[in-house]
Each structure stands twice: as structure tokens, then as C-alpha cells.
Design a protein around this nucleic acid. Structure first.
Lengths: 260, 260
DNA sequence: ACGAACGTTTACCACACCTGAACATTTAAG
DNA sequence: CTTAAATGTTCAGGTGTGGTAAACGTTCGT
């Protein structure tokens, strides 16, 4: 049974590492967990899980608390910082997102793409911003967000096709676009207008406006977006006011980033 | 040679995981790196490094950029967020650190201990704050910082001994305390005063004032600190004004955290 | 156009990792 | 307090697997 049909469509990789990553994922999902718990969840023996956790703990990637429960180690915060520092426009984006949040009173954010997912790298809350499950580091599929569509619209066609094929078009709410053709048509609109919308496709009652940030070669570096409740978003605000604000911020970032 | 004398003083753990973690560490240190580069650095063959990186990349923990250079993946930011969310007093500490930075005009920070290291979880910059190599996620030994000594002073004696033995007392500047006895005496002072100082022990010309945050059982949850150039720190400010400010913030956090 | 460097792939074998089971230690119940 | 059930931890052993070494392909710089 070893090689008959490889279940994962990718190549076979190092199993021990795969297991460790699954354990970390289980810790992330549960907050904290015990050996037996994880062992059952990912289908390996207790002994194996124990050895992995011991290895990870010795390297400060997991932490065993007072109740002998395992948790993610704070070393991840260090690693995350170094991962973040690869994004040169992040500093610029921060100040602009702050401005957007303040001016609009809503929630504003900066997102980049990696491996076909959107990764939120900064969030700012305006005076009347709604609470969402968003956080710095949050990863989401691209097809159901404003930032996501802003990014997708400016990737190469084959990249877009590849991403859709790999990640699928999961239905999040009843408004989520789940048909490839419909999505591609929307992306065409986004290209024409330079602005992408999210009409309750992620969370019921929440709408978003987003625009891509590009470098001098036209490649997307990320996207900015403002998110708020549909009740506060009349036609003029959604179609003119907020897009204008975002486009101005995008311009600032694009101009200042040419020197980087 | 398998079992004669175990070179690492710990137990032998899963090698593949160890290798992967070393690769990640190399990526962290270099920002980006190639297969051959890493292979030389950690002393394994190119093929091995390649397989590890491929496994990590498939799981979004590393990212291969346009120039075929490997970098840390943004997924670490997601994991880091979940690791952070285990610290219940973080939110409270944030608002207090912000206040401290604003009032003092200097740099203020919140740090917790894990595995005998101090992990900086929040930094705020006052009007005239100096630039330091500190960042959220930064890990440092405890013996040469104000927060570190504040924490050490309120850990069990055997924990302190264990930490000193494991991590040593590395000399960072000429003012760093490198003698166990001298450190223990200082910790005694810290316990008496409730305040810890850093007199250019980390960076030449930089001093710090810190105090521990404890829960109702007297266990340390973390520490607050203000850091600034010694030129701006006269005797009164260092011994009275800043300690008072910090103690007030500590009180606020301790009181509000009893309900958690 | 050439060579040197790189990333990638392959084949093979020792041995490290998983499994299964026993042990130790804690928690819960009666 | 006794017992039982659950947990974390340790151990021995065989087998699948990850490491090595070397060849391949491709991308650089010159």
C-alpha cells in the first residue's frame, strides 16, 4: 500500500516534519491540549506525539503549562516578526491604514497574498468600527473578500486559475461567489474600476471596499480595504467616498515605495 | 556511537524535527537563503535541506520568492497570534504601556518569561523614545534587563538557579552582571524595593526601570519597564518619578486581572 | 558560448522513527 | 482511604524512511 496511489496530489515529503506541523496545528486550534487528545486527533500513537512535543518544547516552540497542558510557545512571535520584516511596504501601509480607519470611522486593513491565500498584516479600528474575527496574521481565501478580489484581479490568469483549482470556491455566506465564471467576470470589473467590493460574501451584513497596491512593473504587492456594516454604507459612500479615500492611500504607498 | 555518550545534555529527540527547526532558524537569521547556503551552515546535504524546505513550503511555513530564495512564511504570523492569545493580561498591559510611553516620553514595554527567557510582548514609543533593537517577540536573557531582574526576583529560588545554570550569565556590556552571587544580591534588593534597574547592562548608555506584575498568589505574570538614555535620567527621575509611574500601572493591571 | 554555481531528482541502505505495550503518576469516584 | 480509569512517560524492536552521495537540469555571470 506504500505507493499504489499517492493520496496527496503533491509529492511525498518528510513525514516527521508533517506530523510535527499537524501537532502544532492542533495546538493552534485548541489553544491548549494534552498528549492523548492530540494523539487521537491526528491518528498517531501517544508515544510519537510525546516525542514530538518534547522536541518542540526543548526548542521553545511549545510550552508546557502548570497543568501539564501543551501550548504554542512564544518563540513563534519572534519568528513571526522576522517573517513580517520581509514585507517592505508594511510600514507605509500601516500609516495609511491608520488614516483610513480614522477618516472613515470604520475598520481598515492591509493584506498580502501568499500561496494563494490572503494574509492580513495590519488592522486599524475607527471610532465606530465593527468587531470582526479578523486579526493580524489571519489567513483567508481570496475569492470572498474585497482585498482578495483586488489581488486576484491583478495576478496572471494562470495563477488565478491555479489558485481557484487548488483552494476551491468555498461558500462562506449565501452571497459568496462560488462559480468560477462569475468570479472571473467580477475580476474583469475590478480591473476596469481599480476597486473591488465585498457584498456580504464573508459575513452577513458586512460589506467591504478594496484596492490593490502595485509596484512599478504592475505586480500586486498587497491591498487596502475598508470594512463596515451595510447599514452605514449608502450608495455614494460605497461607490465614491470610500473608493476615493482608498485610492489616495494606495497612491501614497505606491509613490513612496518606488524608492525601496 | 549511537548511545555511548549523549552529547546534548537533554534526551535525544526526533532528528528530522530538529533539522527542520535549525533550517527555520537559519532562515530567520539570514532573512532569506538558498538550499546550498543552509546546507553548509547546518551541516547536512543539499537534498535533505531541499526536502525539508519542500515540506515546509507545502504547509505554508516557508515561501519561495521570485528569485528562488527561501524565506519564512507568513503563516508564522497566524501561529504567533494564537500563541499570544494565551496571555490574558496582554490587553491590560497594552493600554498601560501606552500610557507609560506617553507620560514618560520614553520607550515602554511589557515582557513575560518563558523557558527562562524574557519575551517582549508589547512596545510603545514616547515622543523622545530612543531606537533600540527591541521588537514584539524579541527574546533576551533575564539577567541583564530591568524586566528580567524584576521577574527573576519573584520566581522560586530553585527556578532562578536552574535558569542561571542553563542559560549562563553572558556578558553583553561591561556593566552586565556576570557573577551569580552579585546577581542574587541584586534580586534581593529588587524584592525589597519592588523595582528593578538596568544600568547600561544591555546597551551602553541605556538605562531601564522595571517592576513585576503578580497574580493573587504572588506568582509573576510579567513585568513592565521604561527605557531611556542615561543622559535624560537624573537621580530623582530614575529613583522616584519613573518607579512611581510604573507601580501605578502595575497596580491597575493587578487589580483588573483578578477578575480574569 | 562557456563554465560554475545553483536547485532538483534519483537510488540505495543504515538507522531513526513509529508502534505497541508496559510503567508511573495523577484524577475521580465510591 | 481504596480502587479504577485516565493521563503522561518510558522502552524495545522492526520496518519504513530520511539522509547521503552523486547525477541531472537550469540559471546565472562573464
Amino acid at each position: 500500500m506504500s505507493s499504489s496511489i499517492d493520496p496527496s496530489n503533491g509529492k511525498k515529503r518528510i513525514q516527521a516534519v508533517q506530523t510535527t506541523l499537524e501537532i502544532l496545528d492542533a495546538l493552534r486550534a485548541h489553544g491548549d491540549a494534552g498528549v492523548t487528545e492530540i494523539s487521537k486527533e491526528i491518528g498517531v500513537t501517544k508515544g510519537t506525539v510525546y516525542n514530538h512535543l518534547a522536541t518542540l518544547e526543548e526548542n521553545d516552540y511549545v510550552y508546557k503549562d502548570a497543568n501539564d497542558r501543551y501550548q504554542l510557545g512564544l518563540r513563534f512571535i519572534d519568528v513571526a516578526h522576522h517573517a513580517k520584516s520581509r514585507i517592505p511596504i508594511l510600514e507605509l501601509a500601516r500609516t495609511e491604514v491608520d488614516k483610513l480607519a480614522e477618516k472613515s470611522g470604520e475598520m481598515a486593513l492591509f493584506t498580502v497574498e501568499e500561496h494563494g491565500m490572503g494574509v492580513c498584516l495590519y488592522v486599524a479600528y475607527g471610532e465606530q468600527a465593527v468587531q470582526t474575527p479578523l486579526y493580524v496574521g489571519h489567513r483567508s481565501e481570496l475569492h470572498h473578500t474585497a482585498v482578495g478580489k483586488a489581488i486576484l484581479a491583478h495576478l496572471a490568469d494562470e495563477r488565478v486559475a491555479e489558485i481557484i483549482d487548488n483552494r476551491g470556491l468555498t461558500e462562506i455566506t449565501e452571497h459568496t461567489i462560488t462559480q468560477k465564471q462569475a468570479l472571473l467576470e467580477q475580476l474583469e470589473d475590478v480591473r476596469k474600476r481599480g476597486i473591488a467590493f465585498n457584498n456580504q460574501e464573508t459575513i452577513h451584513g458586512l460589506v467591504g471596499v478594496g484596492a490593490p497596491i502595485k509596484n512599478q512593473h504592475g505586480e500586486v504587492l498587497g491591498a487596502l480595504s475598508i470594512i463596515g456594516p451595510s447599514s452605514r454604507m449608502d450608495e455614494d459612500r460605497l461607490q465614491r467616498e470610500l473608493p476615493d479615500m482608498i485610492m489616495r492611500s494606495v497612491n501614497v504607498i505606491e509613490i513612496n515605495s518606488t524608492s525601496l
